[in-house]
Design a protein around this nucleic acid. Structure first.
Lengths: 240, 240
DNA sequence: AAGTTCAGATCGTCC
DNA sequence: GGACGATGTGAACTT
């Protein structure tokens, strides 16, 4: 890892074109050759960058560039595309290098997979008497997050008692989640062993447009309270 | 801006929980107080971070932590949420600070807005005689990128001449874009003043599955050549 | 290798 | 101020 603080101008060309005027910035060069250009604000996203695999070629400035104060020109080229980042280095204020070694990696907790596991253990949140058929219920167009069986005659749709519920789980549900669940339901309801299958969209938050579309398509919405669900960790409470 | 190279362990708690074991990393502290923790690989995204507005509080280690080699504990707290980042600093290998000033900012070219503007000026790419009704044509479920009027009797659908074309513009069109345009068309075709409305998916690149679905739904696909469209800046050439 | 899905997204814009 | 769409998304996993 090499970190520089330097005045520089940057040009990116590739999927789009982007230009950074001359200013003082932080440049990080990682061990894999990837480059990040950060300003002193904004977000965690660099102003410009090049993803690995890529290579850095350092060249002296042209006579004209040298007259403008350019000391070095870095050309960062992507290995598998035409993407290119050109950094015109002017004054270098700091320049440190260090071998960091391989990072042991990030351990996460609380993502969608946990929501799915918790709801699978607490299917009664979908209604008393519901039982889990299985998580990641396979279909031809991909797995349904949860397939649940309702108690006998729990509800009736078009004169036929609904016996199965397909659940799509999201941290934040948008209109895309409704489309996804709709595709699953269309397919599942062609299976006479399952049909009619009702749909439930379960999420920590549901966008208003998603809720509107879901209701319009007869899909129920269930807002999940992650903290409350995590609090219910008594194994006895899972069995009803 | 302050940049450190240091061995550290990091814990994040907030929307989820994440833990970073002890290792050597780069820590950036920006002028607005935001913090980024980078490893020597991965992408431009930090392993952990805290977005502004936030505050950093530095405290001495507990006796137990000190025995483990912790020199300082940084507690980074978000101003408007419970999110918290705790950095246990062990050995500090580099520590540099510099005032970068305000960045003049990034200038972008070639994003979807440019494509929309160019196609609005070159609607003849949709067919000779087509004229622009308006960009961002409003509907109840959001604006259609372009609404275009065809020349009289340009084509016939179900015995009725098509007079309007709704255009969805993307840099890269995926199946989502087809779904989006389908929702617009369903709505627009309920309006007797507009119906029948044909759909066109215009993009620099169109995913094979998106093209298949579009064709299946009677939506035309148009691949846009950004460089060529940008080259057409002669007003005379627009009128054919 | 290509497609699908998730992620602590951030950012601008428009209502 | 909330909602919604775009972004040079990246990374893991499946097919």
């Amino acid at each position: 890892m090499r970190v520089l603080v330097a005045t520089c101008a940057v040009d990116y060309s590739g999927r789009l074109s982007a230009h950074l005027p001359l200013a003082t910035r932080v440049i990080m060069v990682k061990a894999d050759g990837s480059v990040l250009v950060h300003s002193d604000g904004g977000s965690y996203k660099p102003l410009n960058w090049m993803s690995p695999p890529c290579t850095v070629r350092v060249t002296p400035p042209s006579v004209e560039q040298a007259a403008d104060g350019v000391r070095e020109v870095w050309t960062v080229s992507a290995a598998k595309s035409e993407d290119q980042l050109v950094i015109a280095l002017h004054e270098v204020l700091h320049d440190v290098s260090h071998d960091l070694g391989v990072d042991p990696g990030l351990v996460k907790d609380g993502v969608e997979a946990h929501l799915q596991k918790l709801l699978a253990e607490q299917v009664q949140l979908l209604g008393a008497g519901h039982t889990l058929v299985r998580r990641e219920f396979p279909t031809a167009i991909g797995p349904v997050d949860l397939m649940v069986r309702t108690p006998g005659g729990a509800s009736v749709e078009a004169g036929v008692p609904v016996r199965h519920v397909a659940v799509e789980i999201k941290r934040r549900a948008t209109i895309d989640a409704v489309e996804q669940l709709t595709r699953y339901l269309e397919l599942l309801n062609r299976d006479p062993l399952l049909a009619p299958v009702r749909g439930v969209l379960a999420a920590q938050s549901i966008a208003p447009q998603a809720r509107t579309l879901a209701v319009d398509r007869g899909i129920a919405c269930l807002v999940l309270d992650y903290d409350a669900m995590r609090g219910v960790d008594d194994p006895d409470s899972r069995l009803f």
